[in-house]
Nucleic acid binder design. Sequence first.
DNA 1: GGCCCGAATCTGAACGGCCAGTCAACTCGA
DNA 2: TCGAGTTGACTGGCCGTTCAGATTCGGGCC
Lengths: 211, 211
Amino acid sequence: MGRTKQKQQTRDRHQEILDAAARVITERGLAETRISDIAERCGVSPGLILYYFESKDRLLVEALTFANDQFYLRLSRELRRMRSARQQLTRLIELSVPGLLPEFERLDEWALWIEIWVLALRDPSMAKEREVLDRRWRQSIAEVIHRGRSTGEFPEGTDADELGMQIGALIDGLAVQVLMNDTTLSPARMRQVCMDVAARLIGFAPEPVPA
Amino acid sequence: MGRTKQKQQTRDRHQEILDAAARVITERGLAETRISDIAERCGVSPGLILYYFESKDRLLVEALTFANDQFYLRLSRELRRMRSARQQLTRLIELSVPGLLPEFERLDEWALWIEIWVLALRDPSMAKEREVLDRRWRQSIAEVIHRGRSTGEFPEGTDADELGMQIGALIDGLAVQVLMNDTTLSPARMRQVCMDVAARLIGFAPEPVPA
DNA sequence: GGCCCGAATCTGAACGGCCAGTCAACTCGA
DNA sequence: TCGAGTTGACTGGCCGTTCAGATTCGGGCC
């Protein structure tokens, strides 16, 4: 019990720091994130951060993948609840639209994704991590499609992994635009566009457009 | 003549610096770009950089939009040469796939795009600039579609601007993946996927898949 | 032409702030 | 008593920016 609790606490401190780091990065951006900001957010001294992580760079990489893991866990938890593949797809899209769901004072995971991309361009460990995260993301989409086909909701057609890649890429591209507050693309519209294109690519009847 | 030449030279130095900055950013990344790197690349002293630009930050923003302008100029120059809309679309896609065309020792403009996104999240002037650049990009696609419809190559259907947004987002998303050297998506395959999805969304007969 | 002057261009040393990472010392629970 | 956890002052280097002066250039004047 004692040992468990101690380990537990250690891990908590780890996660606490990772979580704080992710929040700070989201708010201030990777480039403007100082160790002391993270420490302050934890209510802890700067030295302690370096006691738990060997360097700032390493911490940042871990924080980014940590945050993405959180998103993924939430996504799969929610999808598991849904009955129909169509509902799943809808929810998956909704969770992907920046700023659509204000619940949980949700950070914009997408801002972190872009930071991941920049890092991954030069940092090999981040590049590797990124590919894992990305594959998981596309696979989630493909699984929904598989499921829809097995229940007969979606017709057979293009390979599901291929569709996962296509729809995933579409969501990525649109999400960036929405995240940037592009005046021509609101969150609600992005949701609509995604559903629409997904319907056409997968081959099911689209939702009626709201008047 | 004298005055013209003088102005010309000044602008040359300006552009020279912008160009050098863009190259350095592409190679080392925005975060690792020092003023002295840019100066060295120009064969000039660091002080001079600040003589032409009021601050490092401003220079970086200008360099990024400068590079994007270059890409756009090249794109529209090339498209103007093409006869059919289909050729235009193909070329547009080819120019968008990172690393597909090695000609011109082409930098990967996409790396710069991602840096633009990160900056735009926090820097209002960059955000504004980004929206302009992005609109221009999507509009280029929409124009090709319009053209194809006016010549009868493409059928009528979904609004061309809407399609520009959809196809543009798809290209963005895929380009990021390719840029990251994702093992599951080669440049050639991205080209194929883009053509394929574009064909389905616009509604023309796809290219035959090469054996 | 040859000379001069002022402005534009350019240099590189020096300044100053910032911040990652170190470390010696302290706390406290087991 | 021991050692994991924690502190916060300190340091060492880095880099944007400034600045005082050197150099170059172009055009007016004899």
